[in-house]
Amino acid sequence: MSSVATETAVTIRIDGQEVAVPEGATILDACDAAGVETPTICYGPTLTPVNVCRVCVVELDGSRALVPSCSRPAEEGMVVHTDSERVRHSRKMVLEFLATGVDVSQADELGQWAEHYGADPDRYVPGGQTMDEPVRVQDNLYIRDYDKCVLCYRCVEACGDDAQHTYAISVAGRGFGARISTEFDVTLPDSACVYCGNCVAVCPTNALQFKTEFDLRQADDWRPEDQTVTQTVCSYCGVGCNLELHVQDNQIVKCTSPDDHDVTSGNLCIKGRFGWNYV
C-alpha cells in the first residue's frame, strides 16, 4: 500500500498493546505493525480489499459483529482483540467451511492456519456439495482448476480494476453455485484474456497454475525443494519489469514478479510472464 508514514498517526490498542499507524492504515496494517500475525485469503497487498473471505476478522469493542481487519480503517482509540474465543471460532469456521467444499491441498498457508485454529472439515454431513468443476486446460500457458477455487475474487480484481483492466473474468452465478467465469464460460482463447498471468500470480490456492507446473504435478514430478529462483529484468521492452524465474532441472517452470517491486507490483504482461515458454 502507499506509504504515508509522515502523516498523522492513529493509535489503537491490539490485544492490550498500543500501536501507532499512519492515518488510512487498516487494522490489518496495525496488526502487522504490532507483530500480530493474521490469516488472510482474499486480501492482497496490491489489491483493493474486497473483504469476502472473512478469515481476518477481529473483535472490535463497540461493534456487535466481528470486523474484517483487511478493509477496516484503524481509527483513533479502537480496542481490538485478535485472539478472543469469538475470533478464533469464526476463523476456524471459515477455514473449515472452505475445506469442506474446495480442494485446498495446494494452499499451503491456508492449511497451516487451519491446523492452528483446529479446523475439522470431517464433521459435516457426508456427501455434501463441493465445487465439482473439471480442470480447464485450454492453452499451453496456464490452467484453471476451480475445484481449488475459494472464490476470493483476487483474480477478478487483478484482471479488472486493480491491474489489468481486461475484465476477462467475473464472478457468475449466486450462492454456493457462484463460480469464476468468462462470459458463458467461453474458453480463455475466445475470451478477452490477454495472458498477462496476473490472475495466476495472485491466486492463493493454486486453482490457477502455470501449465508447466500442472504438467509436472500430473507427472508427479513437481519438486519446489529442487527449484532455484533467478532474479532478472525482462528484456522484451524498456519498462524494466523484474522477473523471478523458477527453475527445476535447468528448465524454467514458472515466472513471477515481486509484489513490492515499484514497476510491476507483481504484475507482468504475456511476454514477461510466459515469454520463456516460446524460447
Binding site: 473483504n51 469476502v52 473471505c53 472473512r54 478469515v55 469464526s90 469456521m93 471459515v94 467451511f97 472452505l98 469442506t100 467444499g101 459435516y124 454431513v125 455434501g128 456439495q129 475459494v150 472464490l151 464472478v171 452465478g173 449466486r174 450462492g175 454456493f176 453455485g177 457462484a178
Partner: peptide, 23 residues
Amino acid sequence: RDESCGQCVPCRVGTQRQHEVLV
C-alpha cells in the same frame, strides 16, 4: 441457501451446510 449472494464464506458455505444438516 438459494438466496445467499455467495460473496462471503460464512454465509455461502454456512447456508449450504446448514441445509444439508437439516435434510
